[in-house]
């Protein structure tokens, strides 16, 4: 065939460039409304990560780097910290952010490696159950903590921190 078709060498006319217009939903890989959850999760990983740097570094500094370091950690040490609402709030924020950040990260990893639908479902169910239990437990521990424990006779336990002497009686 020797017909010269000038149209053929020109850029295709009447055919839109790929993805230039609205794409028929049946050609999309995922449901567009499901995209917003992943977007929120993506932003959350970054915002929580930035906050966790401060929360965790201060946690490690106060517990390990100052004072007697690892040897200072005992019941009285925790009692001393949690008698201050600032540390209660600090640990609560750290607990929630670290658990949600870590759980979301684990969800990504399960999605990456578990190929069977049923395996993914199982692993994620175990993950969410474990995360829920740990978050609720950690929260309750902070709010129900009792620093100045007494025995049946109403005397302070020997483990009580020094400040309890002025509190009870």
């Amino acid at each position: 065939m020797t017909t010269t078709n000038s149209d053929a060498v020109l850029p295709a006319q009447g055919i839109e460039a790929p993805r230039s217009g609205r794409i028929d939903p049946k050609y999309l890989r995922s449901n567009p409304s499901a995209g917003s959850f992943e977007m929120v999760a993506w932003v959350f990983m970054r915002v929580s990560g930035a906050a966790l740097v401060v929360l965790i570094f201060v946690h490690l500094w106060v517990n390990l780097m100052v004072g007697d370091g690892i040897h200072q950690i005992d019941f009285a040490f925790v009692a001393g910290k949690w008698s201050n609402p600032v540390w209660q709030f600090w640990d609560l924020t750290m607990l929630w952010l670290a658990m949600l950040h870590g759980t979301n990260g684990m969800r990504t990893i399960i999605n990456d490696y578990a190929e069977k639908d049923s395996t993914r479902l199982w692993l994620k169910s175990i993950l969410y159950l474990a995360a829920t239990v740990i978050i609720i437990l950690g929260t309750m521990v902070i709010f129900t903590f009792e620093a100045c424990l007494v025995n049946e006779a109403g005397e302070l336990l020997e483990y009580a921190p020094a400040f309890c002497e002025n509190v009870t009686q």
Binding site: L64, M65, D68, G69, I70, H71
Partner: peptide, 9 residues
């Protein structure tokens, strides 16, 4: 620092 406090106590 961690090893220092550890050996002290």
């Amino acid at each position: 620092r961690h090893l220092m406090t550890f050996f002290e106590g």
